[in-house]
Design a protein around this nucleic acid. Structure first.
Lengths: 342, 342
DNA sequence: TAGGCCCTGGACAACGTTGTCAGCTGAATG
DNA sequence: CATTCAGCTGACAACGTTGTCCAGGGCCTA
């Protein structure tokens, strides 16, 4: 007896279906479908009757059934690292705007920099049959997406390259940006320059480190091991790393911060110092202008927009070979990067 | 002839179905279903054969069909104002975490403060049959959601109250927070205090204004019309409003900023002034500690978490009457709010 | 007035999955 | 050796929608 009760409660409160609407309006099922989809071939009078029935019953089309029938979901998935990160907010929003322009919804999730969670999320989105997928890689092996891509899920990797798979990518010029930033410090007289970046398994982290080394090499400047620190970007570690560089036998006179989270912490630590230490950070930050922080800026919104547009171009049938787009960065001088060595 | 070609290309690259897997593994359809859902009653040997077929064909379950059959989508919708706003990032992330803990995906969209777009989005999510809906209202009439709520979509309104409908809400104490912030300024000797807030149709904006008036009245302090400015929070308008208050016949000595966007712009304008103007802002901001900005902080993550937990409690069957939760705010003194009148 | 055409409306199958139920096999039991 | 039972397995319907196709009726024309 509990059987039937449970049943009727479970499936979303017994929502009315087109069949119910049809019955109430005294028309055929298909006619309701035509009205709901604004298809031609329905008399104004019939349409009115159907609309009234829809109104009265509180009917709403079940898109799951629609998707099942049509094959397209009009939705795309976005797997990013952390929705709460100020870099990804604008990126996500830009993707959403493009999706909206194409009549698609956005489903997104955060991987929290965990490769397993990235995979889990991406595959869950594929199971929902998103038309396309934008992934900010946490892991470095994306072969698990091969069947999906082959099956037609338009996929674009963003911010970091895909691993062991040939696919579309939209990246920022991490190497060039870091190189320019460090060269900027060198140009202002610095030689002992620290680098604090993210974990080495993250591509952008190693690219930026590579840029650092390139700039130092360009200037014929030696690099001490103790000036470089890669690892998780939680405040505690970054703080410790910064303080270590500032207090060693050969203390640095400038720091290059590998991303926005690092920059924020480094700024705090530097504010506590007596010496004025120069700083250039990768990624712009809100209010950085007021704090006078010199940054290498990458346009998160542009990255997201580019990726999404690329994705929809793919969906619209263009099946050129996988493309790799690299967007330039901009150095914005605001003071902290122009301080002379102390 | 193009007919068949178009057809076969359209539906997502002819993905394999359970039927295909069954055929390849030489088993029945239902057995594949059992394996995919880890249901009991399958011989290890059979399971292996099925797994191999799945592997070989690159099969992935079609969740649309599953949803159609089962009635639950294991996903919730979040309609917010702007994903790129630093207040909503953490909120969204908190919702996501709770959803994840309940095995649900998050679909979200930005209303851009447009009531029509809010409705469009919310209803689109309902058509996808999300199990629950979290809405940060842009409009002030949510009767359009009545049939959905009646049909079983667990709905929670956040940050601002629902309009003309009885539903669950999770709010911050805008009135109390603003009152405390303004009282703080008064306690530090200010009498001519400006208020810059969002458009009056936004509930939190008027609540905060009410708090401002309450604090001023508490102190028996007169309020000039020219000290109050409500409107869109784009930098240009806020800048103009701020400059007007600072240059009138009775210039203010302190400003209360109605939200984070306003605060950011006001900080910029104040930095250009010769006089030191006191400031308290509603919402905390990244790096506000370094800039010494005193704020009324509301915990965005806590708001999101509370709302999501409430939603899932609803889904789990608790059908108490609609609840209204109000979360407290915290004043964080950092210097800008403690400046004496100039 | 008869014939043909267009316009509207409806019956039916199909989308890919899961729930129900019945059949089959092999082992355990009388 | 017959019978029962349990454990696997598969056939079939159903979920709610849309595409296909056909029927009926009104209107125009010859």
């Amino acid at each position: 007896m509990a059987e039937t009760a449970r049943h009727s409660e479970t499936r979303y409160g017994n929502r009315p279906t087109m069949k119910d609407v049809a019955a109430r309006a005294g028309v055929g099922l298909k006619t309701v479908s035509r009205v709901v989809n604004s298809e031609p071939g329905v008399t104004p009078d019939t349409e009115r009757r159907v609309q009234e029935a829809i109104e009265a019953l509180g009917f709403r089309r079940n898109d799951s059934a629609r998707v099942l029938r049509k094959g397209r979901t009009a939705s795309i998935g976005l797997v990013l690292e952390d929705l709460a990160d100020p870099f990804y907010g604008p990126l996500s929003r830009a993707v959403e705007e493009v999706a909206r322009a194409h009549g698609a919804l956005l489903i997104n999730g955060s991987s929290a920099e965990d490769p397993e969670r990235e995979q889990e999320l991406a595959l869950a989105l594929c199971a929902r049959r998103v038309d396309g997928l934008i992934v900010i890689p946490a892991g470095d092996d994306h072969r698990y997406l091969e069947p999906e891509i082959k099956a037609g899920v338009a996929t674009v990797f963003v911010d970091r390259p895909a691993g062991r798979i040939d696919a579309d990518m939209v990246l920022s010029d991490s190497f060039g940006g870091a190189r320019e930033g460090v060269a900027h410090l060198i140009a202002h007289g610095h030689r002992r320059i620290g680098f604090i970046g993210d974990q080495p398994r993250i591509h952008t982290a190693t690219e930026r480190l590579r840029g650092y080394h390139a700039a130092m090499a360009d200037a014929g400047t030696r690099v001490e091991d103790s000036w470089v620190s890669l690892g998780p970007t939680d405040p505690d570690r970054v703080r410790a790393a910064t303080e270590r560089m500032l207090s060693g036998p050969e203390p640095v006179t400038a720091v290059f911060a590998g991303n926005n989270r690092v920059t924020v912490t480094v700024v705090r630590v530097l504010a506590e110092q007596e010496r004025r230490i120069a700083l250039v950070g990768f990624d712009d930050i809100e209010l950085a202008d007021l704090l006078g922080i010199t940054v290498i800026s990458q346009d998160a919104a542009a990255v997201g927009r580019t990726a999404a547009e690329h994705l929809f171009r793919r969906l619209d049938g263009a099946d050129h070979t996988p493309a790799r787009v690299e967007l330039p960065t901009t150095l914005i001088a605001r003071g902290s990067g122009e301080l002379p060595p102390a």
